[in-house]
Write a protein that binds this DNA or RNA. Structure first.
Length: 466
RNA sequence: UCCGGCGUAGCUCAGAGGUAGAGCAGGUGGCUGUUAACCACCGGGUCGGCGGUUCGAAUCCGUCCGCCGGAGCCA
C-alpha cells in the first residue's frame, strides 16, 4: 500500500517536488507522439483523478503503457510536479508505471469513460463504484454515517447494537422476511397440520427486524440517550425509487423527553449531519450540484440555517383544504397524508422541511403516546421537499394502563409484549424517539433520484444479484 | 400489487411494413503537453423470448420475461 492517496497528493500543493507512488485504476489514457502518454488514475479517494505523465523512454512504454485502457490497475512512481497543462495543478512525472492488473477485453469492459444510464450501472453493481457518480455517493455515504455517529456521540448517546433477527412477531411495521433453517421441501408439522416452528432453529418463528426501536427502548430506560444505526428489512413488494427491501436506519431514543424534545432533536440532528457533509465533502457536493441536482448545495445550506416549520396534522389538513388545490385523493381528517399532499405542503406551501405532529391515532402505531384529546397521538413526521417522509417518530406510550387499553383495542395479545410492558412496570418514564431513513437522507443530500444508487448493493423485489 | 412507458452493436440511442444505422468504446494508421482530444479506415447485431398476421416483420397483433416511472405500503 502507498503512503499517500490521490486525494492527499492533490490536496497539498506544498508537496510538489516529492517523489511519490500511487496505486489505482486507469480512467483514461491519451498519447502524445511528442513523447508522453497521459494516464488519469483514480484510487477512489477523491472525485478527481491524478494525471500520470509517462514518457516514451520508459522500458515498458511501447509494450504496456500505450496498451492501457480504462479499468487497468497500475502502480506509478515518480516526482510530483506542477502541471504544464491546464486542468490540474499537479501531476506525476512517472519514473515507472507498473501494470498490476490488465483489463481482459477492453471492448467489453462494462465501465467506459462516458455517461452510462443508472439502470445499466445497476446491472454491473460490482464495477459501478469505479464511476464518478457512485464514487461520490460512496464518499458522501461514509461521511454521512460518520456524521450521525459523531452527532450522537457528542451529545452523550450510546450506540446500541440491536438485533437483526427478531423472534417476536410484535413489531408490526409491515411484511417481514422469515429466518428459518427448516427444510422447505419437508416441513415438520404439528398434529393440527401447522408448520411446527418449535423444531426451527430458535424454537419459534423468527424474522428479520423491521426496526430496532422496541429493543432500543429497553436500553433507553437505563442509559437515557441511545440510538441504533444498522440495517432493517421490509418484505413489502414495493417498486418505487424510494423503497428498498434492505435499508439502513438511525433511531435515537431519549428518556425523560416529550414530543417537542423529539422534534427539537430531529431538527438539530438533520441540520448537523447536513452541515458536516457540506463541510467535509465540498468536492463531491460540487459534483452533485453540477451534474445531478443543480441547487442541491443551496437547498442544504437553507435547511441548515432555517427553522423547520412545525404544524399539527389538523392544521395541515386545514391548510391543504383552504389552498383550493384539487387533489386526486381528497384531504380529510383521519386519512393519512398522500404523497401528493406531502409534496404540495413541503414543496409549495412551505418550501422547506416540515415537522407534522399529532396525527390521528387510527393511522399510527400502537406504541405512540395518546394525547389528551383521545383522538390523536404524539407522533411526528418530518417531510422534506423531493422525497417526502425522511423521519418518522413519536413520544412513546409510557402509561401501562393506556398501553394495555390500546393493545386490546387493536386486538394485540398483551402477553406477546410482555417485556415491552415490563418497561412500563418498572420505573417507566416519558420517552421519545424517531427513525431516519439513511438512504432517504442520502437521496435528499445528493439529489440522486433513485434510492438504488445510494446504497452499494440494492435489495429490492427481484433484485439481489450481487 | 395496480396504472403507464421502454427492451435495436460493448455503451447511449435513431430507424415505425421492403437489404440494420449513428455517436462513443475497441482495432490500425496519422497528428498533437493531452485532458469528453482530433482526422482517416476497419471489425462488431438471433432488433428481449415464444407464437401469430403478411409475399415480406426491428416495425402490426397476442403472450411471457426483464427494466423504468407513478400510485399503494413506508423509512
Amino acid at each position: 500500500m502507498t503512503e499517500y492517496t490521490v486525494a492527499d497528493l492533490l490536496a497539498d500543493p506544498g508537496r510538489a517536488g516529492e517523489r511519490v507512488t500511487i496505486e489505482g485504476w486507469v480512467r483514461t489514457r491519451r498519447d502524445s507522439k511528442a513523447g508522453v502518454s497521459f494516464v488519469h488514475v483514480s484510487d477512489g479517494s477523491s472525485p478527481q483523478p491524478i494525471q500520470v505523465v509517462a514518457p516514451s523512454d520508459l522500458d515498458n512504454y511501447q509494450s504496456e503503457i500505450v496498451e492501457l485502457t480504462s479499468g487497468c490497475a497500475v502502480r506509478a512512481a515518480g516526482q510530483l510536479v506542477e502541471s504544464q497543462g491546464k486542468g490540474q495543478a499537479l501531476e506525476i512525472r512517472a519514473e515507472s508505471v507498473q501494470v498490476v492488473g490488465w483489463v481482459e477485453d477492453p471492448e467489453t469492459y462494462p465501465i467506459q469513460p462516458k455517461r452510462h444510464s443508472m439502470e445499466y450501472l445497476r446491472e454491473v453493481a460490482h464495477l459501478r463504484p469505479r464511476t464518478n457518480l457512485i464514487g461520490a455517493v460512496t464518499r458522501v455515504r461514509h461521511t454521512l454515517a460518520m456524521a450521525i455517529h459523531q452527532f450522537f456521540h457528542d451529545r452523550g448517546f450510546y450506540w446500541i447494537h440491536t438485533p437483526i433477527i427478531t423472534a417476536s412477531d410484535c413489531e408490526g411495521a409491515g411484511e417481514m422476511f422469515r429466518v428459518s433453517t427448516l427444510d422447505l421441501a419437508n416441513l415438520p408439522r404439528t398434529p393440527g397440520g401447522e408448520v411446527d416452528f418449535s423444531q426451527d432453529f430458535f424454537g419459534r418463528e423468527a424474522r428479520l427486524t423491521v426496526s430496532g426501536q422496541l429493543n432500543v427502548e429497553a436500553y433507553c430506560l437505563a442509559m437515557s440517550r441511545v440510538y441504533t444505526f444498522g440495517p432493517t428489512f421490509r418484505a413489502e413488494n414495493s417498486n418505487t425509487r424510494r423503497h428498498l427491501a434492505e435499508f439502513w436506519m438511525a433511531e435515537p431514543e431519549i428518556a425523560f423527553a416529550d414530543l417537542q424534545d423529539d422534534v427539537d432533536l430531529a431538527e438539530a440532528f438533520l441540520k448537523s449531519i447536513v452541515t458536516r457533509v457540506l463541510e467535509e465533502r465540498q468536492d463531491d457536493m460540487a459534483f452533485f450540484d453540477r451534474w445531478v441536482d443543480k441547487g442541491c448545495i443551496s437547498r442544504l445550506e437553507k435547511l441548515a440555517s432555517s427553522q423547520f416549520e412545525r404544524l399539527r396534522y389538523g392544521e395541515v389538513v386545514e391548510r391543504l383544504r383552504r389552498s383550493g388545490r384539487s387533489f386526486e385523493f381528497p384531504v380529510e381528517w383521519g386519512a393519512d397524508l398522500q404523497s401528493e399532499h406531502e409534496r404540495y405542503l413541503t414543496e409549495e406551501l412551505v418550501g422547506r422541511p416540515v415537522a407534522v405532529t399529532d396525527y390521528p391515532k387510527s393511522i399510527k402505531a400502537f406504541y405512540m403516546r395518546q394525547n389528551d384529546d383521545g383522538d390523536t397521538v404524539a407522533a411526528m413526521d418530518i417531510l422534506a421537499p423531493g422525497i417526502g417522509e425522511i423521519i418518522g417518530g413519536s413520544q412513546r406510550e409510557e402509561r401501562l394502563d393506556v398501553l394495555d387499553a390500546r393493545l386490546a383495542e387493536l386486538g394485540l395479545p398483551a402477553e406477546d409484549y410482555w417485556w415491552y410492558r415490563d418497561l412500563r412496570r418498572y420505573g417507566t418514564v416519558p420517552h421519545a424517539g424517531f427513525g431516519l431513513g439513511f438512504e432517504r437522507a442520502m437521496q435528499y443530500i445528493t439529489g440522486v433520484d433513485n434510492i438504488r444508487e445510494v446504497i452499494p448493493f440494492p435489495r429490492a423485489p427481484n433484485q439481489a444479484e450481487f
